[in-house]
Amino acid sequence: MTATHSFSTLVPDAILDAVESTGLWSDSRIYPLNSYENRVYQIGIEDGTPVIAKFYRPARWTEAQIREEHQTLLTLKAAGVPVVAPLEFNGDSVLRHNSMFFCLSPRLIGQHPEADNLDQLYQLGELIGQLHHTMSSPFVERITVSPLTQIDNAANQILVGNTFSTKCQLPEKLKPIYKKQIAKLRDMSQAAINAYWPVSLRPIHGDSHRSNLMLHNEQFHLLDFDDCQNGVAVQDLWLHITQTENPQLQLSEIIEGYETYLPFDRRELSLIDVFKSTRVISYAAWLQSRWDDPAFNKAFAWFGSEEYWTNHLNELKNCELEWGEMSK
């Protein structure tokens, strides 16, 4: 395989050169962290605390979009919201090295939330409520959520496939089943959106799953605003629902915490299944579209087999069968 992927030039020397271009002096220790869309490393600093270096995937975001992400984080930090904001060097946090945008941020040590801990769910609701209360002005440069467009684009990606490798293609014999299932979920999503969609969207984190939250010094912090966007409040809440039999108990804790800062429009609960289905469809398309990146080949070696696609179709069917359970 030839090194033609987006991060092919991001070798250790280039990583250290980028970090040291800020004036910091590394001790040459590089520890890769769990990130695939971008590349994230813990970098040891001589006579200092390690920093986290994040290298943005080329051509994914514009400089203006990255700057808006950073300005949001700096504003949130100044307002006392527990987030990890980028470090500034000579008044700037958006750094560039060898045509690649990157940033440095402090290292945060802690634990991710416990999936079924109701007390922690209340705290997470509080944090997201505080976040939304502080992020009062819509984004100008960032994307705006559009579930039906996401479903269409992801489904088209799956059906067309990745020209880089035939290994990860949806088998021809499963395409009719896939098209039928996608059409069903899209129709259900369209109906839910027609029944209720907010008059105006709000700035949100956009990907606030458990791995993007860290309990540090008895306080939860939000990490990784890479997917921040104009969206719907419930997008930042539903990802913490892990129970399938009684999700209402978890939801009530999250919403009660959220309403410490902002009222929650319970009509948004009817959109949870829309966002759930969109996420399931988009995740498979994301894996397929990134298959030219060697990191994906290694981390997701199970992807693309006929068994994978059969399981994916079952997951899509479950989205249909479980529709409405969370909004009862």
Score class of each variant (00 low, 15 high):
249 L>Q: 13
249 L>V: 14
257 G>K: 03
221 H>W: 14
223 L>V: 05
219 Q>V: 14
239 L>T: 03
253 E>G: 00
226 D>L: 03
252 S>K: 09
221 H>A: 11
257 G>T: 01
226 D>V: 02
218 E>R: 11
229 Q>K: 14
240 H>K: 01
225 F>I: 09
217 N>C: 10
227 D>T: 09
242 T>W: 15
251 L>A: 06
253 E>F: 11
218 E>T: 12
247 P>A: 11
231 G>T: 08
230 N>L: 12
212 N>E: 12
215 L>D: 01
240 H>A: 06
240 H>T: 00
249 L>M: 13
225 F>P: 06
253 E>C: 08
257 G>N: 03
214 M>Y: 02
234 V>G: 02
215 L>Q: 05
213 L>E: 02
225 F>G: 05
250 Q>G: 09
216 H>P: 00
255 I>T: 04
239 L>A: 06
220 F>C: 09
215 L>E: 00
235 Q>E: 14
218 E>V: 06
218 E>A: 12
243 Q>R: 15
247 P>K: 11
248 Q>D: 10
248 Q>T: 09
239 L>M: 14
249 L>A: 12
243 Q>A: 14
221 H>P: 07
220 F>A: 08
212 N>H: 15
236 D>L: 00
234 V>N: 03
235 Q>R: 07
216 H>Y: 08
212 N>L: 10
227 D>Q: 08
254 I>C: 01
231 G>P: 07
240 H>N: 11
253 E>Y: 13
219 Q>F: 03
236 D>E: 04
215 L>S: 01
245 E>S: 13
251 L>Y: 05
222 L>G: 01
255 I>L: 06
236 D>K: 06
243 Q>N: 15
252 S>C: 00
222 L>K: 00
231 G>E: 08
229 Q>P: 02
216 H>I: 02
256 E>T: 11
238 W>L: 05
211 S>I: 01
255 I>H: 00
216 H>M: 09
242 T>S: 14
249 L>T: 15
218 E>I: 02
227 D>H: 06
226 D>A: 13
224 D>C: 06
217 N>Y: 09
242 T>G: 14
242 T>I: 10
241 I>S: 09
251 L>E: 03
213 L>H: 11
239 L>I: 14
220 F>M: 05
252 S>R: 12
235 Q>C: 09
254 I>A: 00
222 L>D: 03
257 G>D: 01
253 E>A: 11
232 V>D: 04
233 A>E: 12
250 Q>R: 04
224 D>N: 08
236 D>I: 05
228 C>I: 10
233 A>Y: 13
233 A>F: 15
223 L>E: 07
227 D>G: 07
212 N>D: 10
256 E>I: 00
222 L>T: 10
231 G>Q: 08
245 E>I: 07
216 H>S: 14
236 D>N: 04
252 S>D: 10
211 S>K: 05
255 I>R: 01
237 L>K: 07
233 A>L: 12
212 N>C: 13
253 E>P: 00
253 E>T: 03
215 L>I: 02
217 N>F: 07
237 L>T: 01
236 D>W: 07
237 L>I: 14
231 G>I: 04
223 L>Q: 10
249 L>C: 05
229 Q>S: 11
229 Q>F: 02
248 Q>F: 12
253 E>N: 03
247 P>I: 07
213 L>T: 11
249 L>G: 01
